[in-house]
Design a protein around this nucleic acid. Sequence first.
DNA 1: GTGAAAGCGCTAACAG
DNA 2: CTGTTAGCGCTTTCAC
Lengths: 344, 344
Amino acid sequence: MARGEKRPVTVHTIAKHVGVSPSAVSTVLANRHEERRLAPATVEKIRAAVRELGYVPNIAARRLRAHDPEVHHHELGILTSFEAPVFLVSRVLRQVQRLADARTGAGRRYSISIEMFHAGRLRAMPGLLNASRFNGVIVTNTVPEDDAFLAGTTLPYAVVVLGRRLPNYCCVLDTPGEIGRKAAEILLKGDCRSPVVLTPALLTQSTAERAEAFCATVRAETGREAARVAALGFTPANGAEALRAHLGAGRRCDGLYAVTDSLALGAYQAIKDAGRRIPKDIAVVGVGDHEHADFFDPPLTCVGPSNDTIVEQVVTQLFYLMTHRRVKPVEIFVPPSVVRRASA
Amino acid sequence: MARGEKRPVTVHTIAKHVGVSPSAVSTVLANRHEERRLAPATVEKIRAAVRELGYVPNIAARRLRAHDPEVHHHELGILTSFEAPVFLVSRVLRQVQRLADARTGAGRRYSISIEMFHAGRLRAMPGLLNASRFNGVIVTNTVPEDDAFLAGTTLPYAVVVLGRRLPNYCCVLDTPGEIGRKAAEILLKGDCRSPVVLTPALLTQSTAERAEAFCATVRAETGREAARVAALGFTPANGAEALRAHLGAGRRCDGLYAVTDSLALGAYQAIKDAGRRIPKDIAVVGVGDHEHADFFDPPLTCVGPSNDTIVEQVVTQLFYLMTHRRVKPVEIFVPPSVVRRASA
DNA sequence: GTGAAAGCGCTAACAG
DNA sequence: CTGTTAGCGCTTTCAC
């Protein structure tokens, strides 16, 4: 902390500062001074210098030093913005780990880490451009700025993009149009006459397309317009508030498609508070395979991306890219999953 | 893939194999052969060799090479087993990132990554013992085997343990005894006469203590024994099944403490299916500050660890340890949070 | 067009 | 008890 802020502090710096050799410093840092029988006074002086100079070990150097030449070490990264549905990320992680475990062997190890970036600041992640952090990455939950960055540069290692179309990378995508269409069909077949779609006010590419396709389908099949309700944010509370306002204003609604899980949860509360029954008065459709949808009251019918399939594709692609490098980018579309439950 | 499995493959290996110099190989790997005007034939031969020999770049070496001596790079790790409630981990991550961002400056960068290990296999995580991966770590969701490993060795860098007591490390803990006691008090004050505690069959130290304290409090206050219902696993489905069996057998229950969120969710379904009302027939208490507890139907009263406070303590400790190294281990206990809602 | 050499920061082996 | 030396694998000058 004290003074070494601008000049880099290395074991060498400390050694000179104390008047000992770098190896003595190294020994103390690893708590091996006993077996090396360093003089306690020396140890103390070194410790003091370490603290005073604010020494931070260089991890890359240590790793290189510790490296066992018999094993290949693969560094995999899952890169996601903070504004992410964690549960999807954790599924990706689990799947990556499963496949990595299956391939781990004598001369092969995998390290997998999740790295979060602030939306729009992917370019600032260190080591991305010079390939000094990962052997392969999965990129997801990007915003347009990040996409522009990616599109403008071809990273020289394995990259799979989840949920975006970028011409120079392998991409795995859901089909938001089809999702919206199917959601509309389910509601319309259930004799819904005044469909509503509940979205966050800030639409992502994906949620926008879902809502759009929903409305288009309603228009095509009935000639009427679906009502659009925009929640301020992504939380259940936002969803509840928005739908409450809609219902409170006496506007019609006998069928609802909520484009995210959390909004559906909030919608349930608003509907019940308004004294309406699900699905009798208002049928509700949410998005795909939420782990708790079965325990909503009533259980929630879902149309949305089949995340497990998506994740599987992503991970398969990543490993493929890492072994056969420089293949032509592909786009993989995964059709939606539909789970019918009691709410529609 | 093909043959280089046992002998380590480096740029040097490839260079020799093709009959060029390491620098040529390096240039091709970084896609810089254009500006260096390598012969296209050479480039192709190098590419072929790279593929054939299954070359994997050594990330540590690249990092060391790319290292800018003007900035200190801090590697922070959040180490958690797979059997983890992701949402807690993601809170830790957010908080760490927040504090790291605040400290990031000219000569200072932080990288934060989540690393998952298989329960009981923490010792197998590479680079833990020789300090070649992290400058500081937060360890959580360990099982006894992992704890034994940690207790037996003092890692020579900043370590904060979340949710376990280990004599040689800084630990931050909730107070499961107090949690169980408060849960019991809430139910008993609500005139509950036949309390039940719902737990997973496989108890962690923490869930066991919560259940134990709950039963002890019931015993002390009423002289009766609380019934214990064990669910096969941790999911809502497990919880629903277990409680359904209990209620179906005609056994009494007018107050329930579920020691995890998911079990509470399942319990709701079982209770409603049995035609009972919450809280009129059966009052329900869940654990701390679940983000969706407000949207349970009815909203769920919670007694549990106050995760935000815990996370704050953990992260504060970590940064403290990194700047003032080798301080005496401390134990920090964070009292439970109580949020009263409609379910009890 | 291509190769040789230097050195990033660290630690283990070997000499004193 | 302590210092010197070598080298982990990589990329970037610089020289040919």
